[in-house]
Design a protein around this nucleic acid. Structure first.
Lengths: 123, 123
DNA sequence: CTTCTATAGTAACCAATGGTAACTAGATAT
DNA sequence: ATATCTAGTTACCATTGGTTACTATAGAAG
């Protein structure tokens, strides 16, 4: 049976939702570079709260995209590293990040045109 | 200046957020196949409400990813079609959809393993 | 002439998610 | 004793997402 992303119950859509997660993708791309600890991630990703980081890391681990390893130091440190599955997902996200960087200007320009148009029509 | 997706104010992150939009990607992929009217989209994408469809179409138009064309029929019909910019974004999303279809099984299996583990630890 | 259909939305309201700030716990340093 | 580091959790509030009902217009059906 072929997946149909337009069907509501299609599990493939769950995965698109997961990528839709604002922070998940950023974390994966970072962990692809190197394994990192909790606070290290928090400091690197501007604007993420401890709660969200904890939450997203948990769900990424659940999906098998990263591994969590607690190390018995004092205080305890926890290392997060990407899995093979996570690497393939990160690779699939690359074209998207590239698109964003390449086409940012066009999108912002389109937004300005649209907003100017709206303003004009309102007058 | 090179964009840094980990910086909070980086506009590139706005675009990742846009792709993160649950419905936006589905709409783009559909419109790449053929131009469609409002209710046609609504019927094709299971689970989307009129409000969300209207909202998302508006923001996609603002971003220059699709064009809206009102046709003076009775009742008025409105045709949405993808732009060149939209086509390139849809292309960047393809690897992601492919990944989802290919790796869905692995992700679901990982989730089951994780949940079983959690249950065991709770006991 | 009233009701039903279709079109493409908008408005009011409620539920779920996202984000903020404070707190926990254990050990070490000042 | 107090502050610091680690990795979180908890309670709370704001924003977003979703559901349902409604608008306007015109033609067809009864």
């Amino acid at each position: 049976m072929k997946p149909n992303v337009y069907a509501a119950e299609c599990p493939t859509r769950q995965i698109l939702d997961r990528v839709g997660d604002k922070w998940a993708v950023l974390i994966l791309l970072l962990l692809r570079e190197e394994a990192m600890r909790f606070n290290q991630l928090r400091r690197t990703i501007e604007g993420i709260s401890q709660k969200m980081l904890s939450q997203v890391l948990k769900s990424l681990e659940r999906d098998g995209l990263l591994k969590r390893r607690a190390i018995a130091t004092v205080p305890v440190t926890v290392e997060y590293s990407i899995t093979q599955l996570g690497v393939t997902l990160a690779a699939a996200v690359d074209p998207l990040r590239d698109w964003a960087e390449e086409n940012l200007k066009d999108v912002l320009a389109a937004q300005r045109r649209y907003d100017a148009q709206q303003k004009e029509e309102a007058a």
